[in-house]
Every structure is written in C-alpha cells, then in structure tokens.
Design a protein around this nucleic acid. Structure first.
Length: 587
RNA sequence: GCGCCCGUAGCUCAGUUGGAUAGAGCAACGGAUUUCUAAUCCGUUGGUCACUGGUUCGAGUCCAGUCGGGCGCGCCA
C-alpha cells in the first residue's frame, strides 16, 4: 500500500512543469490548523527560477488534481501548499489498511540483504550494561528491516580470541575454583582473569607464562584448545540465557577466531597492493591523501602539525588486530551473503576505527565498496543520576542479568500493589513483560547518539512516554473485547468504518502514518522515531477512547469503533514488537 | 593540541533532514470519573534553542568562531 505523501507527490509531480532537481516532497503539516500535509516545493522552485513563490504556488495549484483525495488545497504564508484530506477518503484508506497485513508499510521494490552486526559480547566476561544498547538497538533494527520485507542476517561477532586468553589459561590452570565455576561460570572466569591480570602487572614471570599459554593456544596445543572451547561453551550458554530473556536471536554466531586463517592473506594482499607498509616493525595503512587533512582518518594534528595516525593491520609481534579481523569478516560477509548493506551497532568511541576500516576497504576492494553500504550505527553511554557512567552503588559495572532481574522485581512490586487479586504466576508474567519492556523502551526512546540518564522511576512510570503507558493502551483495548465477549455480544467482523467524530478521524489519520514512519526508521537506523510515533498513536487512541464510547454506542457506529480498536491494538502490538517489546493482555 | 558528539522549559527529552507562532512527559496549579482499567483525558504556568557573527524569502537545524561538557587520538576492541 502506498503512503499518502507518496500519492500526493505523484500528483504534485504531474502538476509541476519542470521540477529540475527540486525535491517535490510532501510532509506532514507542521501544525494541524494548516491542514494534514504540506508541500514546500513552490518556495524552492521560486528560488531557483527567481520568481514570486506565491505565483509559482498558484501555477501549481492550477494544474494540481487532488479533488478525490483532498477537500481543500490552500496557499499560505510564504508559499506553502496545504492539503486537507477528505474524511471519507481517509475512511476508505483506513478500510484498506485494515485488510493490509503489512499495516500500510510499502513493500520495497527490490528487497535488500542487510547484515546486522550487533551485541558482540566477549567470551569469559559477564554481559554487562554496556552490551544492552547494541543488543536492543541491533535487534530492533533487524526486526524492522525484516518486517519491511528485507532479508536480514543477524550476526553476533563475539570476542572469542585475543591476548586475554593467555591470562585466562594461566588462571584456569592455577587458581580456578571448580565450585564457583559450577555456580556462576562467567563470574569465576572474570575473577581468575582479574587475578592473573593483576599479578602480571607485578610479576614478569606470570606475564611470561601467560604469553606462553597464548602461544600454545595459537599453535594448536590440544589441552589449551580444549580449555578455550570450554570457556566459549560456558560463555555461550550464559549469552543464550540473556538472549532468551530479551527475545533476541541470531542467524549466525561467528566469533573472531572463525576468521583466523583469513587474517594473514588479508595482510598479504594489502601489502602486495602497497596499501599497507612496514613501520616500526608493524604493518600499517597510512593516508593516501585523497581527503582533506581534517577529514582524513589516518591523520591527526598535534602541536607540531599533522602527523600520521595509521591503521595497524599487523602488530610488530606478528599478530593481527581488530582492523584486520574486521576486514576479513567483511570479506567473508560479502562472499557469503552478497549484502546490500552491513550495519555495525557499537558505541560511539569506535568511530575512528570504523572510518579507518571502511577507508581501507574502499582502497582494497573499490568495486565491492561501490555496491555495499557500510553503516556504523553508533550510540552514546548510559549515565547514572550523577551524570557519570551508570554503575552499582558500590561502583561496579552493572551485570545485565542483574539489571533485568531488578526490572522484573520492581515491576512485580508495582503490579502486586495495583492488582493484588491476580494469581502470583500471572503477576510475575505481567511484571516480566512490563519490566523488560520498560528497560528496552527507555533505551530506544532517546536519540541514540546522545548519552542518556538511567532512571527506574521514569521508565516504569505509567504516565508519560514509557513502555507501560503504551502497553496500557493495548490492554484497555483488550479489556473492551473481553467485556464484549462476557456480554455474549458478537463482533461483526469486517463491519464498515464510519469516521464521524473528530477523534475518530484523527485516529484514522494517525494509523495511516505508520507506513510513512517505518521506512525512515530503517533508513536512518533510528528506532526512536518509531517509539515517538507509537507514543503519538497511544495518545491519539486515548483521546478517541475518552471521546467515543465503544460498548455504549450502538449499531453501525459501535461496529465501526470496534474495528478502530482492533486496528489500533494490532498496530500497537506490532509496533512495540518491532522494538522488541511484548504486550500483556491485562496489567 | 586535533577530531567526533553534545548544549532546547526547574528536571528528563523530542524536533519529519532549511519551513509557518519551537513541542512532549515529569514537577506545580486547575478541571473531568455511578469508568470500556482515572494506570486516563482536558486546561494553565513555564523558552535569549549555550554565546557571537554569517549564508537567505526563512536557521533550533547549514557555515565560521567563542564558551562549557563527554569521548577518541600506533601496536586493546
């Protein structure tokens, strides 16, 4: 189904004689007093043609044929074209929307293949609050892309290789507490890592033994490989528990180690093509001078002027590092899935790394680079009330499992207070849906590039722009349907819609906007736009709910209002689902 | 020092890619309920969009500079 702006743009295009490169865009009206949609094209055209904008607008208006869609088109202000939709046309569109399993979202002409690289926890470390944004954001983008109709590959690029395993192996062999490992494998692995890491700083012999264990692992020593696999297995099982709770799944989980045999060929190619060269015993990629100095990721300025800031692809000890791993991974993904886009969901501190990596890729495989979009989707940090990075009271990093537990506990206390009569099992389930929903929504609501302040009270509030508020809108609709069933009334399926009351028309228009919003959300990788839309939808629904009694109305009006409820519920459930948030049937 | 990001109501945040008189929520105050879940809705108060200049019909948005904050800057990822 086409969106309304798309339809109006077609009409506008037919009415403009020579648009040139002026975008004939239709946007929602900035103020509902002006109408429903507006076009600014006349002002842009007037500027280019050096004409009076209102005269240009008048010319367009003269040729514009939208009588079937709009009750009025007016010229206002400096040359705005304001479109007001016919209520009966809105009604017909909502009828179409009701039959559309895609909820008004246009189907892409050519579905893309999108690889999404997100979450990426490290083996032998507990998942902590730092992983939540990547996990939730990446999962939401994957769900949105899939819903729109693209093919999605969810790829968990876990950190399962690197120098830390030398220390972990030393710790495993010398200070491992089996009972503790049994109870909480990741906590124990973290403990032995910290233990050995601390001793390495004080004792060179420990550092040396860690180095030797690492060399043994890398050269295929059977015992160390076995222990390494055991660490991965234990870690993966903990990851799976968390992902299960969050409702997150992956299509592939290929850790860094998967790319080991591809690393040296990558370095060799870069060297052979003179993209990389030796420097201080390492292989490095330097600037090719194709960009202005300020924009060049391989240059940096200090007191003495511009100096090199190379990307290291092979360390002086002969080991490759993450730039190389990422390049090998990129090569593998191109060969395996031929994606149109690869999305990397990480925190903002890695911006320079990705700019360098993308740039090396461009120089290494220019033809492939021209056909794939590489998107570094980065996000800010989570802060505590004090404005500093979010930590526990004792100053530790917050473990993700603990955070989710606390969300459910706090939510359970709320639900129990409000609805003590419900059986405990049901209160637990409601608390799970609300608690996890609140955490996810709080994370997805702010613009992802800013830091945001974590607050239990705010995210769990039933007032304002929160998950519980949105879930409540859905629950109220379900309550209507429950009452209907209890009264033994039959719902007339597929009854005609009658949008008469202004609140009904407003709700209809709002429902039709979903299809406009969702493609933008994916294009900009910004689920917060969807969150804001859903809030507006819930708000508009509540206004309808107040103004238009459903069960107390009669006949065709009642049947129509029930249909509006049904579509609203479906859209709320689907929309929240795309944010990874479930809805309860009662709360 | 250089780069990236941020600075919008007392607080937490939006702002449809340059549009019309800058919007929500919380907090404060005032209304609406024999309820379809008031877990809601309606209203009032609250602004030098950090500052200065520039670009143009038009700037919170783009450009330059200043102030303030976060992050990053050769062998961690």
């Amino acid at each position: 189904m086409e969106t309304i702006p798309a339809l109006l743009e077609q009409r506008l295009r037919a009415a403009v004689e020579d648009p040139g490169d002026i975008p004939l865009r239709i946007t929602s009206a900035s103020d509902s007093r002006f109408g429903d949609y507006q076009a600014n094209a006349a002002m842009l055209l007037a500027k280019q043609r050096r004409q009076n904008p209102r005269v240009v607008a008048l010319e367009i208006l003269d040729r514009l044929k939208v009588d079937d869609i709009c009750s009025s088109v007016e010229i206002a202000g400096a040359g705005f074209l304001n479109f007001r939709l016919r209520p009966e046309w809105v009604q017909a569109r909502v009828e179409m929307l009701r039959l559309d399993a895609h909820l008004g979202v246009p189907v892409p002409e050519r579905p893309k293949c999108i690889v999404i690289d997100f979450s990426s926890p490290n083996v032998a470390k507990p998942m902590h609050v730092g992983h939540i944004r990547s996990t939730i954001l990446g999962d939401s983008l994957a769900k949105i892309a899939e819903f729109i109709g693209h093919k999605v590959v969810r790829d968990n690029h876990i950190g399962d290789w690197g120098t830390q395993f030398g220390m972990l192996l030393v710790g495993w062999k010398t200070v491992l507490d089996r009972a503790a490992l049994e109870r909480d494998p990741l906590l124990e692995m973290e403990r032995i890592y910290k233990d050995v890491s601390a001793r390495c700083r004080e004792d060179a012999t420990v550092l040396e033994s860690a180095r030797q264990e690492l060399v043994k692992l890398q050269s295929g020593d059977a015992e160390n490989l076995g222990l390494w696999r055991e660490m991965i297995r234990l870690s993966q099982s903990q990851f799976d528990t968390i992902y299960g709770r969050l409702g997150v799944r992956f299509d592939v989980t290929l850790g860094e180690s998967f790319y080991n045999e591809r690393l040296h060929p990558v370095v060799e190619e870069l060297r052979a093509r003179q993209i990389a060269r030796a420097s201080d015993g390492a292989m490095c990629v330097f600037t090719d001078g194709s960009l202005p100095q300020e924009q060049d990721p391989f240059l940096i300025k200090d007191k003495d002027g511009w100096r090199d800031n190379p990307a290291i692809v092979l360390k002086s000890d002969g080991a490759a590092n993450y730039t190389t791993t990422d390049l090998a991974t990129l090569q593998y993904r191109l060969e395996t899935w031929h994606p149109d886009e690869i999305v990397y969901v990480t925190d903002g501190r890695q911006q320079l790394h990705f700019r360098q990596m993308f740039s090396v890729f461009q120089r290494w495989m220019p033809e492939a680079a021209a056909s794939v979009r590489l998107s570094h989707v980065w996000f800010g940090s989570i802060l505590g009330d004090d404005g500093k990075p979010f930590k526990t009271r004792s100053g530790e990093t917050v473990r993700l499992a603990d955070l989710l537990d606390e969300a459910e506990e706090r939510s359970f206390a709320q639900v129990s207070e409000r609805n003590p009569a419900l059986p405990e099992a049901e209160r637990r389930e409601i608390a799970r849906v609300i608690g996890l929903g609140a955490v996810k929504y709080a994370d997805l609501l702010p613009h992802r590039q800013g830091d945001y302040t974590f607050s239990w009270d705010r995210m769990l509030s039933f007032q304002g722009n929160t998950a519980p508020y949105l879930q409540n809108a859905y629950v109220r609709i379900q309550s209507i349907f429950r009452k209907l069933a209890e009264a033994g009334s039959e719902r007339i399926l597929g009854a005609a819609l009658l949008l008469e009351h202004p609140a009904e028309v407003a709700l209809g228009k709002r429902l039709l906007e979903f299809g406009e919003v969702l493609p933008m959300v994916l294009e900009d990788h910004r689920p917060n736009t969807l969150a804001n839309y859903l809030y507006e939808l819930a708000n508009t629904f509540h206004a309808f709910y107040e103004a238009c009694p459903v069960l107390k109305s009669e006949g065709a009006q009642r049947a129509s209002r029930l249909e509006l409820c049904e579509i609203s519920a479906r859209m709320l459930k689907t929309g929240l689902g795309l944010l990874g948030i479930e809805v309860p049937e009662r709360m």
